[in-house]
Amino acid sequence: MKVTLKVWRQKSASDKGKIETYKLDNVEDHMSFLEMMDILNEQLILEGQIPVAFDHDCREGICGMCSMHINGEPHGPDRGVTTCQLHMRMFNDGDTIYIEPFRAKGFPVIKDLVVDRSAFDRIQHAGGFISVPTSGNTQDANATPIPKPDADKAFDAAACIGCGACVASCKNASAMLFVSAKVSQFSLLPQGKVEAKRRVLNMVEQMDKEGFGNCSNTGSCEVECPKGISLENIARMNREYLKASVSSSE
């Protein structure tokens, strides 16, 4: 099939950037979206132009490295997948495809489609852990049974890949879904309960510092999240936050 690509090109963080148009006429539907981008880049290189920079690594939907706003949606039109898992069979011959970086104040553009998501890391530094030593001298793993429903829910929250699509999809550029996933995972597990209060307060404080917006419950994050992280987590974090603020004098 043939496609026309409208790609955001920006030389560096300080460059203004603009949309460029490219045409590809040898695209197959079994190709992944990023394989289509590889072909574009190969073509650009051979024409003596600069290839399009984009983030990617695992190409199987788990590392969270790929991003891209495709036709107005983070990770493109398919549901429950990342950009690297999107396939060209989702598009039609003759389509025009708009490809832009994730747009959010907390995610400044580095080059072309590559953005800086280090704010997510800084939120995790503030509290995304359980304070246990790494000596291995902890109690036996089966000493504290965890009810399966809790373990399963903790797992579902822990499945977040830190891609940032939730932020990119949100009109307020809120990071609530991402932060609440980590807060929820730990608050559901007995091991994480001990520090639950401190964790939620510190992580939310850092989130606000990074310039992410407020949550106004539009729910677009849940729709665009490639890992099905549920809004329930935001509700749980709000409860945790309230509890912690009330008793934070401890």
Partner: peptide, 20 residues
């Protein structure tokens, strides 16, 4: 020890209905 360590860190391994 690895399993003990990871559980203490909050790694949500699969569990049976009895919680183990």
């Amino acid at each position: 020890n690895i399993i003990d360590q990871c559980v203490a860190q909050g790694v949500p391994f699969a569990r049976e209905y009895g919680g183990l």
